[in-house]
C-alpha cells in the first residue's frame, strides 16, 4: 500500500530526526552543571540503539547525514564525525546477533565498547589533522558522560521505538 509505505518512511525518519536533534544539542550552550559536565554525544546513543533494535529505520545514509551535519555545525574538519558514527554503527551491526534481546546490562557494555572504539578513532583522526598528540582528558570526560547516560536514553528510545515506530 502506498499509504502505509509513506507512513513507514515518515516513521522511519524518527531516528534520523533524533540524531539530528542530538547534533544540534551539541552546539547548544547547555553548560550542564556550570559547564563542568560535557554535553553527552546523544547521536552516538541513537545510532547504537537503532543499529541493534531496528537497523532498517536507521540506514547508513541517515547516519552519514547526522555525522556530516554535526561536522558542519561544529565547524571541525569534514568527515570526522561521519566516520566515527559509521564505525560505531558498523561495530554495533556486526555484533547485533549477540546483543539483540540480551539483558540491558549486556547491551550497555556493548555500547561502552562501541563508544571506546568511536573515541579512539576520533582521537586518531583529530590528532592526525592537528599534527599533534591531542590530550585525551576532554575525550574521556565526554565519552564517559555519554556512557553513563546510555541506560536512561535507551529506556526512552525503546519506548519511542515500540510506541511510535513499530506501533505495537
Amino acid at each position: 500500500m502506498a499509504d502505509s509505505d509513506l507512513k513507514t518512511i515518515l516513521l522511519s525518519l524518527t531516528p534520523l530526526a533524533l540524531g539530528l536533534f542530538g547534533a544540534i544539542l551539541l552546539v547548544t550552550p547547555l553548560r550542564l552543571f556550570q559547564g563542568i559536565v560535557p554535553t553527552p554525544i546523544f547521536p552516538l546513543a541513537v545510532i547504537f540503539f537503532w543499529s541493534i533494535y531496528g537497523p532498517k529505520y536507521l540506514p547508513a545514509p541517515a547516519t552519514f547525514v547526522i555525522g556530516v551535519t554535526q561536522d558542519l555545525l561544529m565547524g571541525g574538519p569534514f568527515g570526522v564525525w561521519a566516520s566515527v558514527y559509521l564505525v560505531a554503527q558498523f561495530v554495533a551491526q556486526t555484533q547485533r546477533q549477540y546483543f539483540y534481546g540480551r539483558d540491558q546490562h549486556v547491551v550497555w557494555m556493548g555500547f561502552c565498547i562501541a563508544t571506546v572504539a568511536a573515541g579512539l578513532l576520533l582521537w586518531i583522526e583529530m590528532s592526525l589533522i592537528s599534527r599533534a598528540a591531542l590530550p585525551v582528558l576532554p575525550l574521556f570526560a565526554q565519552m564517559g558522560t555519554t556512557m553513563l547516560l546510555y541506560p536512561m536514553l535507551s529506556l526512552a528510545f525503546s519506548s519511542v521505538h515500540k510506541r511510535v515506530i513499530v506501533e505495537r
Binding site: 547508513a60 547516519t63 574538519p77 568527515g79 570526522v80 566516520s83 559509521l86 558498523f90 592526525l128 589533522i129
Partner: peptide, 24 residues
C-alpha cells in the same frame, strides 16, 4: 543487505577525512 552501503559510506567518510588532512 545494508552492510554494503555502510561499508561504502564508511570508506567515503575516511576519504573525506584524508582530504581534510590536506585541505581543511
Amino acid at each position: 543487505t545494508r552492510r554494503t552501503s555502510l561499508v561504502f559510506l564508511m570508506s567515503f567518510s575516511f576519504v573525506m577525512v584524508i582530504f581534510s588532512l590536506y585541505g581543511a
